[in-house]
Every structure is written in C-alpha cells, then in structure tokens.
C-alpha cells in the first residue's frame, strides 16, 4: 500500500493556450525527420518511385509512340510530362496510404496526447515525401533523355517543370492525407484512390492528343486539372515558356492545399 507523499499543492507548469507558428514549423520538421529516418531504414519505400519511371516510360513510349506520333522520339515530348504527372499521382497516393497505416499504430496515441500541433503529424510525412517525388521526377527525365528526348526548354525549362510537378504532387498528397484521416483502413484507402487516379490520368491529355475523342469526353478532359498540369509541364519543358497554363496549374494546386489541409486536420482531430 502506498502512502500520500503530497497532499495537494501541486505546482502546475505555466500552460500555453496554443502552439505558436514557430513551434508548429519546428514540429513539422521533426515529424518529417522521423519519416525520412524510417525511409532510410526501409528502402522498400523507394521501389515504387524507382521502378515506375524505369518501367512505364519505355513501355508507353514504345507501345504508343508509333501509333500516336509516328515515332518514339516525336512522341517523347508529349509523353514525358504525362508520365511525370501519373507517377506523381501514384506516389502521393502512397503518402496517404502510409499515413493511414502509421495512424493505426500506438505511437499516434502519443502524438495525440502530446501538447503538439495537430497539423505536424500530417504535414511531416508530406514534406518528407517530396524526396520521393524528386526521385521519380529525376528518373523520368533521365529515362526520357536516354530514349532520345531532347527537351526544348533547356535546363531551366526542365528544372521549372520538375519543381512544378513536385509542388503539384505535394499539393495533391493532401487529398490522400485527408482520405487517410477519414477512412478506416489502408486497403480501403488504396481501393478508393485507384478509382480516383485511373480516370483522372487517362481521361486527360497525358498520353494522347484529345482531338480524336468524342465531344463529351473532350469537355471533361478540358476541365480535368491533370490536363492543365500536363500542358503546363509541356510548355515549361519543351518550350521553356511560362504561360497561362502554368498559372492555372499553380492556382489549382494552391486551391487544393487551401481546401484539403484544413479538412485533413479536422479529420485527424475528429478521429475516434
């Protein structure tokens, strides 16, 4: 049997009403560091971003090249931006799935019970995953160039396109992060994500010119944000031109972030 050692006057620490923006940023970086640490320990997490560009770029290039553009090297300027976006989308889907799996572990109980920012456990992995997007983007360009792609936009154009697609992937990953906070299982999330991804990538201008599609399909393709990002990447990488499409793509990404970050945080807070 234990005895009372203190009878009441517990000196309470000074309580902060909320997490300051500076602390929030610090905690996001800590959580990103944790995610990177785990990636280093488990290199399997790099398989998808490595294999996908290595596999899909030649595959689509040699299958569709002749039929769509009359030759592989003529097709590549059209294909590479499409592959970039497709890879980015599947990669950021994995961000959501990994987070969902992570949240099922006990450590998230601790994160929730700590006086820490509610956005940090979500934003940390999103920040760390930009490494994965960077790998995928670099490899796609690399494979393309090895196959004979000569981007007309030069180094700056390619760099600009690379940054844009990484930013787009980071923005879209918030959609999957949000789904991760409201879905019950990682498998369920993966299933739903595939249903979203396939139509988005294929009902766009990513792989083929849209002129042969029926009118109703063209109408969808025109409003599909994937089309705008692909067009923006094409003008940056192939022409070195910053045009209206780039503006639209950036705006669309910003809108996704503005909508889905608060939704994701809300989903995380409400989680039972």
């Amino acid at each position: 049997m234990t005895t009372l050692t203190s009878t009441g006057d517990v000196a309470l620490p000074e309580l902060q009403p909320r997490v300051s923006p500076r602390e929030t940023l610090r905690q996001i970086l800590l959580m990103a560091g944790r995610a990177l640490h785990k990636m280093r320990r488990n290199p399997e997490q790099f398989f998808d971003v490595t294999l996908q560009p290595l596999l899909f770029t030649p595959m689509f290039g040699y299958i569709f090249g002749g039929a769509v553009a009359g030759g592989v090297s003529k097709y590549l300027p059209m294909l590479i931006p499409g592959i970039l976006v497709q890879t980015a989308l599947t990669t950021c889907m994995a961000t959501g799935v990994t987070l969902r799996e992570d949240m099922e572990k006990g450590v998230f109980d601790r994160f929730k019970s700590l006086p820490m920012s509610r956005v940090a456990p979500l934003a940390g992995p999103a920040v760390a995953d930009t490494i994965r997007y960077t790998i995928a983007t670099t490899l796609t360009f690399g494979v393309g160039i090895a196959m004979g792609y000569r981007p007309g936009g030069g180094v700056l154009g390619v760099l600009g396109a690379g940054l844009l697609v990484i930013f787009a992937a980071w923005s879209l990953s918030w959609v999957f992060t949000f789904l991760g906070t409201i879905m019950k299982s990682a498998q369920g999330l993966q299933g739903i994500s595939m249903m979203v991804l396939f139509p988005l990538t294929f009902l766009s201008n990513a792989y083929v010119p849209t002129s042969t599609m029926p009118d109703w399909l063209q109408a969808f393709v025109k409003v599909n944000p994937v089309s705008h990002v692909v067009s923006a990447l094409r003008s940056l990488a192939n022409d070195g031109a910053v045009n209206g499409e780039v503006g639209w793509a950036l705006l669309a990404c910003a809108a996704v972030v503005a909508i889905f970050v608060p939704l994701a945080v809300r989903g995380y807070r409400r989680q039972l």
Binding site: Q16, V107, S113
Partner: peptide, 27 residues
C-alpha cells in the same frame, strides 16, 4: 482545466502510457 474546451492545456498536464505501447516500433 476543462478537458473539452481546453484540450491543448490539458495535454501539458498529463503523460499517457497506453495499453498498447504508444512508441514508434520502427525507431
């Protein structure tokens, strides 16, 4: 400190040891 209206303050007053260890398995 009210748990419902000021959860952030409450979290500064407690330490939780869960039934299933709330630590990171991969670290």
């Amino acid at each position: 400190v009210d748990v419902r209206s000021e959860p952030h303050k409450v979290r500064q007053l407690i330490g939780l040891t869960g039934q299933y260890a709330s630590v990171d398995e991969k670290l």
